[in-house]
Design a protein around this nucleic acid. Structure first.
Lengths: 243, 243
DNA sequence: ACCTGAACACCGTTCAAGT
DNA sequence: ACCTGAACACCGTTCAAGT
């Protein structure tokens, strides 16, 4: 309850310095935090230099003293977000379960931050937290007996798969809305598509018309686990003497 | 060699109507073609309404008579591009090879058009050519005995995998450049990353430091085929009586 | 019906000037 | 060293006005 919290009128005779001053001095962390706040509330496209600056009560030019560019800010946001991913310790006997858990956990965290996965897909992990995630998954794979060359490729493929799935997922789900609104929005989008598929000329698109239900009722979680299980099983086939 | 080809000075007494007239009347096809030309030359981000309009000798507002929005233009470009994908006829006995061929062909075509895959990832195929591709792959899978529900999920996953891989690939390869320039650019990018990985604290990142070579020497084609083979093998496990 | 100029409300980034 | 205002060169989209 100090005087910084509640706004006071300007005392007479002392003129206001700025219409709106930054509460805290600008730092990289503060800028990144603010970016993530905007991301979570409105999505990645809303995270502009001007918007973040405005949120901090300053102009866009001020950010460039702390951050090289918008893309660098995006990278920093991604690394900060990926610090939330909690990965298990390696265990040679249980590497398949642990990799599956890891992928699901990474997907969960990424999904919680809208379309930040767009930054991840198509960029090499360089930030400390991103690298720690890679390190952990590598440890799990190697402990399980996956050959190094295969483990390296698997790491790439897995990251790609997670990112792509999260990006696909963010089209349907409006996570800012409540669950019932999300369901309604899902139906609003999928309904017309179902109708469109059904109205397609069956001579040209026989299988799509025949499989409208299978094609549109797909649950996102189910599909992700489907591909993940296949991938892990395939990976296991590269491990000598794997049960 | 008609007079439309070579520019003539304006005859005296007849004032020029516009500084620069569109050669051809605006149509959706012409706009889409122009968009793809810009895409191939400079990438998706260069394809702006203003840029396409300029290329056609008109203003951005004129495009809106034919195309609803920039996103719609992107969708139309994607569908046009995907018409180049040539998929094989179904053959029950050879479904695994045919799906592999199909995936490689789709990847080849998408890769040839810079980062158009960004439009594809995270959008449901609705255009006639996109749907034809889906129809063909569905036919191959169903002919091979893959259960409909599995085939539907596989289709989604495969499309996602192809898109993600192409997007990843477009970071490294500057396809507008010649092959030797592409190689040089690749080395310019990968070299510093290798050095960075090697300089990482080994106590915190033991596996990454130990596996720098495996992690950075990854060939894009090899990795794609690796994941593809695993996926197809996994898919085959859902087919009753598959050899 | 198609096209246009002008305007609106935005962008990322730079740079000289201030403290 | 950090911050700023102003400017530059862009965006997508709308809309009244023209043909």
């Amino acid at each position: 309850m100090s005087d910084v919290e509640v706004p006071m009128p300007t005392p007479p005779g002392r003129r206001p310095r700025r219409t709106r001053e930054p509460r805290r001095p600008l730092t990289v962390d503060l800028i990144v935090e603010t970016g993530i706040r905007v991301l979570d509330a409105e999505g990645l496209d809303a995270v502009t230099m001007r918007r973040v600056a405005q949120e901090l009560g300053t102009g866009p030019a001020s950010l460039y003293a702390h951050v090289g560019s918008k893309d660098e800010l995006y990278d920093l946001m991604l690394d900060r977000v990926s610090a939330e991913i909690r990965l298990p310790e390696p265990d040679p006997a249980r590497w398949r379960e642990l990799i599956k858990e890891s992928a699901l956990e990474a997907r969960r965290v990424m999904s919680a931050h809208r379309d930040i996965a767009r930054v991840s897909l198509g960029s090499i992990p360089l930030g400390p937290n991103l690298l720690l995630g890679a390190e952990r998954m590598l440890a799990i794979l190697l402990a399980g007996g996956v050959p190094p060359k295969i483990a390296a490729m698997a790491l790439d493929t897995l990251a790609m798969y997670i990112d792509a799935d999260v990006i696909e997922g963010t089209i349907y789900t409006a996570r800012a809305l409540g669950p019932e609104d999300g369901q309604r929005m899902y139906e609003d989008k999928i309904g017309p598509i179902r109708d469109y598929f059904r109205a397609l000329p069956p001579a040209r698109y026989p299988n799509i018309v025949a499989m409208v239900d299978e094609l549109t009722e797909g649950d996102g979680d189910e599909r992700f686990t489907f591909g993940l299980d296949i991938f892990i099983r395939g990976l296991a086939s590269y491990v000598p003497d794997d049960s």
